[in-house]
């Protein structure tokens, strides 16, 4: 039973309420579903809607995305056009109008496709708390969350050079469905071979994971079918797949190499 919903108009006030035990709520797509089913843990909610932590800014290729930026705003942003396909693979328009970039860091797989992208992009996360601010790599937040009283305020990423960003999400239906396997990657090539690779996978572990084994296979080799098949099989060592209503662990591991290849070759 909810006893209070606060909508602070400053970050400091939001941090204060969070430190006092309030449950943070950004877009509400997770928390309000819990409120509606009577399963939210805390009686006090703290909405971040008016805390002033939205907005997208670009400095060269360095993008800073405020935590309460909605997925719809990312979808419409010319600066982040490379993320458009990824964002449109998430839920539906009426969810994307509410769901936020910050919130996407905290949903369990197989949801959280933007978090998978941020992992591939080597993004960092700005966090404000009662003891001050810090900035950490996104995989730290994905693994550990944030401390009580802390509020994610923004993510920072480098917009990838043209031709280096890859994204593919396998779903049970064409739109509005969770990941069976999601692949997000920033891969650079020169002279016909891979020179750098950051590949993140969704849908195949409780949190987004780096496919380090696949990255290792690709370095120095061309992005061709047999190389990608080998990388995909190697990637099975990086995952901890689970059964759920969408697909079984067996199936996810089985088709991972197929979808890894399709992310690069179509």
């Amino acid at each position: 039973m909810i006893t209070a919903v606060r909508t602070p108009e400053s970050l400091a006030a939001a941090v204060g309420h969070a430190a006092a035990g309030g449950r943070l709520m950004a877009g509400g797509t997770v928390v309000m579903a819990q409120v509606n089913s009577g399963s939210v843990g805390s009686p006090e909610l703290v909405s971040l809607r008016r805390a002033g932590i939205g907005g997208i800014s670009l400095d060269g290729s360095a993008a800073r995305i405020g935590a309460t930026t909605t997925l719809a705003e990312v979808e419409e942003s010319p600066e982040l056009a490379f993320l458009r396909d990824a964002v449109r693979s998430i839920a539906s328009p009426a969810i994307r109008s509410l769901a936020t970039v910050g919130g996407n860091l905290f949903v369990p797989q197989p949801y959280g496709d933007l978090a998978v992208c941020l992992l591939a992009l080597d993004a960092t996360v700005e966090i404000a708390g009662p003891d001050g601010s810090r900035e950490v790599p996104v995989d730290v937040v994905l693994a550990n969350g944030v401390a009580p009283g802390e509020v994610v305020t923004a993510v920072r990423l480098a917009v990838p050079a043209p031709g280096t960003w890859f994204y593919h999400k396998a779903m049970r239906r064409k739109l509005n469905s969770a990941a069976i396997v999601a692949v997000a990657a920033v891969v650079g090539t020169a002279g016909g071979v891979v020179t750098s690779a950051r590949i993140a996978l969704g849908g195949v572990a409780p949190r987004p994971v780096r496919a380090v084994s696949a990255e290792g296979v690709l370095i120095g080799r061309p992005l061709e079918t047999d190389v990608l098949d080998e990388a995909g099989r190697a990637a099975r060592g990086d995952i901890e797949p689970f059964d759920d209503a969408y697909a079984s662990a067996w199936y996810r591991a089985r088709v991972l190499p197929v979808h890894l290849r399709r992310a690069f070759l179509g």
């Binding site: 877009g27 309000m32 579903a33 509606n36 009426a94 969810i95």
Partner: peptide
């Protein structure tokens, strides 16, 4: 467009 059931 929003899911009004999810808006506090």
């Amino acid at each position: 467009p929003v899911m009004s059931c999810l808006v506090a």
